[in-house]
Amino acid sequence: MCPRPLVTGDRRCSNGWVNSPLPDRDRSSPDDGGAPVGRRLVLAMLGLGAAGVVAAPVLQRTLEDGLGAVADKDPTGLTGLLPNGGGFRYYSVTTSVPEKTAADYRLTVDGLVDRPATYTLDSLKALPQTRMVRDVQCVTGWRVPETPFEGVRLSALLDAAGVRPGAKAIRFTCFDGAYSESLTLEQASRPDVLVATRMRDEPLAHAHGGPIRLYVAPMYFYKSAKWLSGITVTDSVRPGYWEELGYDVDAWVGRSNGRDDAPTV
């Protein structure tokens, strides 16, 4: 049988256990009394969470400064796993992405152009290269400062192909089989839009969209389609993969997607 506790003290009093005259404390059930510490802890966590949301901008800056300094000297790469530990995050919308090398990589330029073309990796690298160093800003919040990109200006490829009158936009397709992007012809003609061959002064790695990716410096990074394989000139903007899912087509950093990040250009 389970003996019921002898309740003699005022159990709502926080020091009830200390002062209440429990002559036979051993026999009372210790599970029934005491302070509601559990409830207080739950409420404290809720308060801390709310305070964290409010204080996040300050906390984040402090942490980024500290972690950034550590990450620069971290040989294990473990700091890269910490939130906002600096660096890129890998997003792919498909299960796996084939690897392409100089032997089998091709980039086609077609659509409303006079001279459709197919480029190999070597032929792209042989064209005049432009190097830019800007911040990379992802629409999910992370930002990587001063990242060098190098490649052929998209406008140069479009000029070589001869854009026909009536063309309004460009559609980009990727050899992952699913991703797509878009730019207006005016956006595509900007000098800070590259068909990138190098990133961080190294050949583009597969994980970063290599061997060739788009680089749209003034826009959120989802515009910079990885694993670029097709450039098609069209008569209207066709929203890309994430844009079909609600992201802005004109994705200027700091002026779209409801965000106010500092512009990257």
Binding site: G49, G52, V53, V54, A55, A56, P57, L59, Q60, P83, N84, T140, G141, G258, R259, D260
Partner: peptide, 13 residues
């Protein structure tokens, strides 16, 4: 937006 950024920060850590 500030709330969302703050929420992301708290959610991650």
């Amino acid at each position: 937006l500030v709330w969302r950024t703050g929420a992301t920060f708290v959610h991650d850590w």
